[in-house]
């Protein structure tokens, strides 16, 4: 077993793949936390679909310029398309003309159709797109890795460095505006970082499953946390764990890495969702009252002794018979 692990870790192909998986597992949930907070869980999916058009567009340009291999521009194409697409979604959302929902739907369909159409024009086949749709971490080259690391650093710098400001604007946009924060800049920063995350994660899990890595770890974390910072931290831990574990599994089993990672994340969610309520019951500090903590507004008339001060006294002493 140990030998097998050492063998895996010394395999240069696997080393590159593991570093990429680690970065994706770390960055995707951090960005995903902001997306979940602003109720844009499906934004990653929308961007992923647009990135497919970018892949095909890069391919088309590469073919036209006679570059070898033809897909050398696929990733830059994906980066550009994803950034343009995400900024477009943000502008549509902030104008409020079309609901974010419809804007996303347009991107989903337009992105996939555009990708398939363009790859055909470029002389490729739909199977060329498969590597991008479902990931191809085993083909990560040294150059790919460098790009992944650079983008990962940018994502972390923005996602962590501007955390307080991004939290504020995601939590209550109206208050952020009334505080004079550069709300438009911050919104676009989230959108661009989400786009970069999608293109980084594309190699590992594929465009169709990118969003799962941004959202599922956050969903897991939310089950057990009460604070934003803890949610982000725990989501990143879950993300890194499932990415590295999932990838390692596929070293021994010939399974799709992307699908393995995502299924693993969902299994973690299912386990935590089952176990968390029991744990929460066990470690609750004070008595557990499922009702929100609302003092009684209804003043019950004291039965015989209707003294002026009675309601207040009653409210103080008797609002929870169980704790008496």
């Amino acid at each position: 077993m140990i030998d097998e692990l050492v063998y895996m870790l010394t395999d240069p192909l696997m080393q590159r793949a593991l570093i990429a998986a680690l970065l994706v597992g770390l960055t995707a949930p951090i960005v995903g936390t902001y997306l979940v907070q602003r109720r844009l869980s499906l934004l990653g999916d929308g961007i992923g679909h647009v990135a497919l058009t970018g892949v095909a567009l890069g391919w088309l340009v590469g073919a036209a310029m006679g570059l070898v291999p033809q897909d050398v521009l696929a990733i830059p194409g994906a980066v550009i398309a994803a950034v343009v697409g995400s900024v477009a979604i943000e502008i549509v959302r902030s104008r409020g003309r079309t609901s974010g929902d419809v804007a996303l739907a347009l991107l989903f369909y337009g992105g996939i159709a555009g990708g398939v159409l363009l790859i055909g024009i470029a002389g490729g086949t739909q199977s060329n797109l498969m590597a991008y749709l479902f990931g191809s971490i085993s083909t990560v080259t040294g150059a790919d890795l460098v790009l992944t690391v650079i983008l990962g650093v940018v994502i972390l710098a923005v996602g962590l460095g501007l955390r307080a400001a991004l939290f504020t604007v995601s939590q209550d946009e109206e208050f952020a505006i009334a505080s004079g924060l550069p709300v438009r800049f911050l919104n676009i920063a989230v959108a661009v970082v989400a786009a970069l995350t999608v293109t980084v994660a594309m190699r590992v899990v594929g465009l169709l499953l990118v969003s799962a890595l941004m959202i599922v770890p956050v969903a897991v974390a939310q089950l057990v946390t009460r604070s934003f910072s803890r949610t982000m931290l725990l989501a990143a831990i879950v993300g890194v764990t499932v990415c590295v574990t999932g990838l390692s599994i596929t070293y021994w089993h010939n399974w799709s890495p992307g699908a393995t990672i995502v299924v693993l994340a969902i299994v973690v969610y299912a386990v935590v969702a089952t176990v968390a309520p029991a744990i929460a019951r066990g470690r609750r500090r004070h008595h557990h009252d499922p009702h929100p903590d609302i003092p009684d507004d209804v003043r019950v008339r004291p039965e015989s002794t209707s003294v002026q001060g009675a309601p207040a006294a009653e409210r103080k002493g008797g609002d929870d018979p169980c704790s008496a």
Binding site: T33, V36, Q37, R38, R39, S41, G161, L162, A164, A165, F167, T168, S170, Q171, D172, F175, A176, S179, G180, L181, P182, V218, Q222, T225, R226, S227, F228, S229, T231
Partner: peptide, 24 residues
Amino acid sequence: QSGVPSTAREVVSSGLLHGRRLRL
């Protein structure tokens, strides 16, 4: 509620940011 849980302290701390201060 927003999608991610946040503590009272986190929400209040966001009031410390303003046009000229983007970090706590």
